[in-house]
Amino acid sequence: MPQASTAKSLQAGASTRKYRTREELIRFVLFLCAFLSVLTTLSIIAILAWEAYSFFREVGVFDFLAGTRWTPLLEPRSFGVLPLVAGTLQIVVGASLIAIPVGLASAIYLAEFASSQVRRVLKPVLEILAGIPTVVYGYFALTFVTPLIAGIFPSTQIFNAASASIVVGIMVLPMTASLCDDALRAVPESLRQGAFALGATQFEVTLRVVLPAALSGVMASFVLAASRAIGETMAVTLAAGATPRMTLDPLQSIQTMTAYIVQVSLGDTPVGTVEYQTIFAVAALLFTITLGMNIIAQRVLARFREVYE
């Protein structure tokens, strides 16, 4: 008779069925959430593409991508996006010049040199710094960094690329340092021990074993820092100005792609006009650049991984 009773206990009772229905329901809700977030992303891309398409029925793609004059709101109108791209690039390069070396150096200090007590204090501080609202950085640029630069270079304009680059660099610095630190600390302790046992100094161990072993993670954090700088909006809107201009002079006012989108969104440009659709064209370009960067980064990382893992 034991067999019969086992078979019976395996049959679903009323309570089991209720419990199964609940499981199904939960699974369905979770699926719906996942589906919704994918759907949202896809519809944003679709709207972006549609509006950009409407824009490009009026303005040639080549005129847009290769034009060096961006005056969509003024007569004579011109839709060459390169000045905005150049402005964005200036911010990215400037910010990277600060965030990459300083961030890497801080991470090396934190991961390889700092005592555990120092680390316990500094690491959370980095994470808090990463959470400061970006508008604060914008005001910091205007009220503190710009006067400082103007004190050294009197030709500095009130709105300028240098000041914005510096604060964007400072803004992405904690994230860069924290991510690099994670990458360095992911290198197994046994590699350090092996290197020390060969008569290496702390510096040799860091630069010639730990850093190369962590290279893919370190590069990934650089790419993330750069893409955050590209997408950064508030600080550059406040500090870099609204003058689309192809220039290498960091002391002049410029405009980034993001700052332009803010300008038009907040302005009184009538919806549906070509002027209004420019922001979708610019946004589509921004999206493409970031996507391209991520794809390239992943390729590079995959190559490093092949060598090191």
């Binding site: 197994p188 046994s190 590699l191 021990q193 092996g194 060598v307 090191y308």
Partner: peptide, 10 residues
């Protein structure tokens, strides 16, 4: 020194 677990560099 040679360690318990082989630890070649990557």
């Amino acid at each position: 020194m040679v360690f318990q677990k082989p630890n070649p560099f990557p």
